[in-house]
Design a protein around this nucleic acid. Sequence first.
DNA 1: ATAATCACCTGCTCGC
DNA 2: TGCGAGCAGGTGATTA
Length: 271
Amino acid sequence: MPELPEVETTRRGISPHIENKLVKKITVRQKNLRWEVSKNLSKEVSGNTIDKVLRRGKYLLLESAKGTILIHLGMSGSLRVIEATKPAGKHDHVDFILENGTSLRYTDPRRFGCILWHKKGSGIHPLLLHLGPEPLSAEFQHLNLYKNSRGRSVLIKSFIMDSKTVVGVGNIYANEALFLAGINPKRAAGNISCARYKILVSCIREVLNQAIKAGGTTLRDFTNSSGEPGYFKQSLNVYGRGGLVCKICDSTLKEIRIAQRSSVYCTKCQR
DNA sequence: ATAATCACCTGCTCGC
DNA sequence: TGCGAGCAGGTGATTA
């Protein structure tokens, strides 16, 4: 689930329920996520208030007076606000138990996510240190992409999925943005003109904005366990459509693998 | 420095 | 019905 739009949807969904709420305690049932859940997490956070829920790339940042909880959802993670008494399922690894009888529950079958404590005053967390610009911010500019890609042979799809280039572009939206921009995913990043990077930047923004907007519809019943987003499915042009016809030109969409990730494109529309 | 590959883990689908 | 193979929305670490 979690590409940037899903993480942003999660942020918007949980923040009204946990901002300015006091954390009573944190229960860790499974500490072996991508990295071990910080040992001192409950000790550091209990009795403190979550002041703000921020997002940087696909990381969620729960800010308190003493520091920040970094949460990444990996491939299969999710966060829900539930009644604290609700029995924990097999993959419900961590509960942030709030004062009001609710709990922020972290669920992650594959355990590729992480939950890390970062004490205030210890600078920028190493995981956030080298991240590129937010795709929806003014810092994300085609001129920088153009300059940073000169002389590089990395494939354009891998280039835009690299968090040093720009954060938050996952496999689905890399495929979709390249389709909208008419760029073949196998093209070398260093071989793409400034004008085309300008188009690509606006297509990345467009596709993410659309998805966030669609994600908004699942916001309403966010605390329910349902809310699984089929919302963007129908608006996908290429992802998951290998072998089917291009919606623009009717030719057959090609599916290949780039960096072990499925990549679908139209050989006619994308050059 | 850059590019490609590996690794982490569970669950689901597909073909036999 | 069972079993192995392969694949899945991510990304830091390792290798070449």
